[in-house]
């Protein structure tokens, strides 16, 4: 079954149309990347799927369930989002415990704290961090909390918006390994936005290249590794990629 199907998606911010006729299909268990320069609309697509951007036409279907624009709790249980900047995405005055318990309270899931324990363990956060505030954590630890918050509802689809671009290379490696392990262990499907093609090569099976709000090419990670992308713009992206062997 397809985990996520997007058909003819046009997203607007006010008067201006940001994406044009996006069509995507992500299989269950697949890891799919959206790449492109800023302003190409890749984050906007994630925001529409997550229900943050509400003004769109077309259809978004996850696991056979269509979503309406706006808040959709049933959909939220299936699909959660991890944001780019762990310094901005965690509430500064809430402890890790409060941050992780909130989704449970919103969805009316009774729990005596075991689920928080379990999810912290699965993202590799030690128990002693449970009652700390974000400012007492490092960048990597914060991103682990953000991933834990997304996982606590046991979703099947994770939307990842540049999950490692705010982190140091060594911490980036830890978070990428974590994401890879979680996907294997929990059978997750990823839709990830990034501008780092090397990250795509490490973590994803397929990618779509976006430009000016349109998808210009869909390719497999193998094609990327071989440098066999066809669209001239995609080739340009590979060329500018810093880890491109010069």
């Amino acid at each position: 079954m397809s985990a996520l199907t997007i058909e003819n998606l046009d997203i607007c911010y006010g008067e201006s149309k940001v994406t044009h006729d996006i069509n995507l299909s992500v299989a269950e268990g697949e890891s799919f990347a959206l790449v492109g320069e800023s302003g190409s609309g890749k984050t906007t697509v994630l925001r529409a799927i997550a229900g943050i951007a509400t003004s769109w036409t077309g259809s978004i279907t996850a696991f056979g369930q269509a979503r309406s624009p706006g808040i959709d709790r049933g959909f939220a249980r299936q699909c959660q989002m991890v944001f780019q900047d762990p310094y901005g995405s965690l509430h500064p005055r809430k402890t890790v415990d409060a941050t992780l318990s909130e989704p449970l309270a919103i969805h009316g899931i009774a729990d005596n704290g075991e689920r928080v324990d379990e999810v912290m363990q699965s993202v590799g956060l030690d128990r002693r961090f449970r009652f700390r505030f974000p400012h007492q954590l490092s960048g990597g630890q914060r991103q682990r909390v953000a991933i834990a918050r997304a996982l606590i509802l046991r979703p099947k689809l994770l939307l990842l918006d540049e999950p490692t671009s705010a982190l140091d290379v060594s911490v980036q490696a830890e978070i990428l390994n974590l994401l890879k392990r979680l996907r294997r262990e929990q059978g997750l499907t990823y839709l990830m936005v990034t501008h780092n093609l090397a990250v795509v090569s490490f973590l994803c099976d397929r990618l779509a290249v976006m430009r000016h709000g349109r998808i210009v090419e869909v390719a497999s990670a193998d094609q990327l590794k071989r440098g066999a992308l066809e669209d001239p713009y995609s080739r340009e992206l590979i060329q500018f990629s810093p880890s491109h062997p010069a």
């Binding site: 590799g124 060594s170 780092n196 090569s201 490490f202 590794k225 880890s243 491109h244």
Partner: peptide, 27 residues
């Protein structure tokens, strides 16, 4: 060397990226 090895490459085929050992239990 550790920092260099932790960077994913465009033609990545490693199953896991090597990470630096730290003093703390988890980072």
């Amino acid at each position: 060397r550790g920092l260099l090895a932790a960077i994913p490459r465009l033609d990545e085929d490693r199953e896991e990226l090597p990470v630096l050992q730290r003093d703390e239990a988890s980072t």
